[in-house]
Design a binder for these strands. Sequence first.
DNA 1: CTATCCACCTGGCGGC
DNA 2: TGCCGCCAGGTGGATA
Length: 274
Amino acid sequence: MPELPEVETVKKGLIKNVIGKTLQDIEINTEKLRYPLDKASFESLKNKTIRDIHRRGKHLIIFLEDNLQLIVHLGMSGVVKINPTDSYQKIKHDHIVITLNDNLSIIYNDPRKFGYWLINTNSKPLEHKVLITHGVEPLTDDFNAEYLLIKLSKTTRKIKQTIMDNSIVVGAGNIYASEALFDSKILPTRPSNTITKKEASKLVVSIKEILIKAIAEGGTTLKDYKNTEGKPGYFTQQLNVYGRAKQNCYTCNTEIESLVIAQRNTFFCRKCQK
DNA sequence: CTATCCACCTGGCGGC
DNA sequence: TGCCGCCAGGTGGATA
């Protein structure tokens, strides 16, 4: 499900509703997400207050008092909901239910269980093993043509795979990688080290613009992604190539093709992209 | 370093 | 209606 815009949307929902609230009860309903959930450790979070919520790549960092953080990844199918506690009714795959004061609950639902919630206690969450390997944030000035070009020059991997490599730039997943390459008029199969400076500049702009537009639309819902209010993302309506194999390109009417790159289905227009 | 395959897990969809 | 294979917004590990 969730690439950067979806995680950012969840972050906004949480910030709006749960900052300053206190964790009164934590219910763990599954033994294992991607990493095991240690019930005893979660007990230690009781009565802690939520201070802030950050996003790093596709991770949420929930800052609690006393240098505690929850580092959260939504995997492929994770959904975070905020519900009034008194009207909450548990549904299948509600793995974590955090009851806050003020009649609010945070519910983590994840059918495929590829997500994870990790407790970090060292006050430096960015040094945690799941975050330390992250490359630059795409929506900062650290992600620019010079930076990208240097990274691209060092590898022959297909460009799509490189822009999805979180150690280079975080946040672009399978949807937005295809969309950004279409916007940049670059074929996803191009060896990274053949991308020109001009193309790299365009690609940087395209990635930023597409992520920003997607955030503005609340993300992309293909199947089960929902924001904290249970609403879908509307960027789905603006997808130019993703999921459109054998349909006509909106720009040139050529049939959109699909191809598996690094085990991920990839969509492109052979005429618009070179 | 690269490409490739597999695993984790569940559910939805199309085909028969 | 039912079963079966295939596919899915992510990531990491094994292998050649």
